[in-house]
Design a protein around this nucleic acid. Structure first.
Lengths: 198, 198
DNA sequence: CTATTGTTTCAGTAATTACTGAACATCCAA
DNA sequence: TTGGATGTTCAGTAATTACTGAAACAATAG
């Protein structure tokens, strides 16, 4: 938890979209942002990035780098890099206002679409390589490769475990694939099927 | 990545279940363990814990603390604490051999069951609290609470975003619940339904 | 061109997380 | 009841990750 408390004194070039001021609303938004940040941290997304995304999502407004810095008390560098990363993920978008140089950022509004983007990316980056490794492991234990060890208990056990894991990950992968493919706005096909069938 | 290289010289009180020796098998297992560890790290589970689990899973054998220490080059303390944490999760089990004081640990063998346990726990620990926060946020923005702001754009936008997120998380929660409830050995009901319907 | 405004980058540092090793606790056989 | 084998805990430290702040860079207007 950062120690920083000083509120940077912004020599305001006032913004077209000012930060919300009503304390009631602000409190609600802050609660959401904090919780979303915590959850992100647990799932391997750094807290600040999750918080920035939460801020853009919850306000529903396009905000600029300075808005984010001020509202979350983070540095310009951090703001800039995290915003870029979120753009790379594809869950926020750069925006320009007519006749203004400053860049604004806004979150996608459809949660299903966001989740689907994240799922696709994590599958690609993290599950696919594991599945490939497992398949290679299985190949390396084929009778042709291990010769006389083909009947060795230890080899057999490991082989069985790999098979179990491979089945699991293949199926999971397919489910992901389906989810990703069908996700456009609102409850998607996968979820509809599930809710109906269960 | 730890720098440690020294292989502790174990004054072997030889083990009933010796570490596997065949280099071919060992290499396959190590590949799997490394990759599983990486994946764990990305998903917010510490690498060592994931590796220990991978080791127990892939060998299919009950191993003792020293086996784990030696095979993964980690300290006794680390070993002990990580094994306990895995037991707490419920994806490995303590085991005793007749007439031996030493404790052994073995992994569950059913991947579906393991995944279901993990899903249940993460839902409980991480999703439920977020959903609760969101519901509280929504309550705090009900007309009765905010009076004259009920028609304020900023309030309305935030309210809509919260609603969208709430819907998403509720449905996700239900799907998780189904998965968890039905997961016993082999492809469970949820997955069967999905694969048939798609 | 050069002043102004806004953005990106990154070396250095702060904060967090993971790990070790040694002290301590427990059990059991002799 | 003592000693070795095993298990647990935790203060201190190592390794990793996140963040800052300032400098470099880019775009635009005057």
């Amino acid at each position: 938890m950062p120690v920083l408390e000083l509120q940077p004194v912004t020599e305001t070039t006032e913004r077209l979209v000012p930060l919300p001021v009503e304390p009631q609303l602000r409190k609600v938004q802050d609660d959401f942002i904090r919780k979303w940040g915590e959850m992100g941290a647990i799932w391997g997304i750094n807290r600040t990035m999750a918080e920035i995304h939460a801020l853009l999502y919850i306000t529903g407004l396009p905000l600029c780098t300075d808005d984010v810095m001020d509202r979350l008390h983070i540095s310009r560098g951090n703001s800039s890099m995290s915003l870029r990363a979120l753009c790379d993920w594809g869950i926020i978008r750069r925006m320009h206002r007519r006749g203004e140089r400053r860049e604004y950022f806004e979150s996608l509004s459809d949660v299903w679409e966001m989740f689907s983007i994240i799922a696709a990316e994590r599958k690609r980056r993290e599950m696919d390589p594991v599945l490939e490794t497992i398949k290679n492991c299985i190949k390396a234990l084929e009778p042709a490769q291990i010769g006389k060890f083909a009947k060795d208990d230890a080899f057999i056990r490991t082989r069985q475990r790999l098979d179990g894991m491979e089945e699991f990950m293949s199926v999971t992968n397919k489910v992901f694939q389906q989810f990703i493919g069908n996700a456009k706005s609102g409850l998607n096909k996968v979820v509809k099927v599930l809710l109906k069938a269960l």
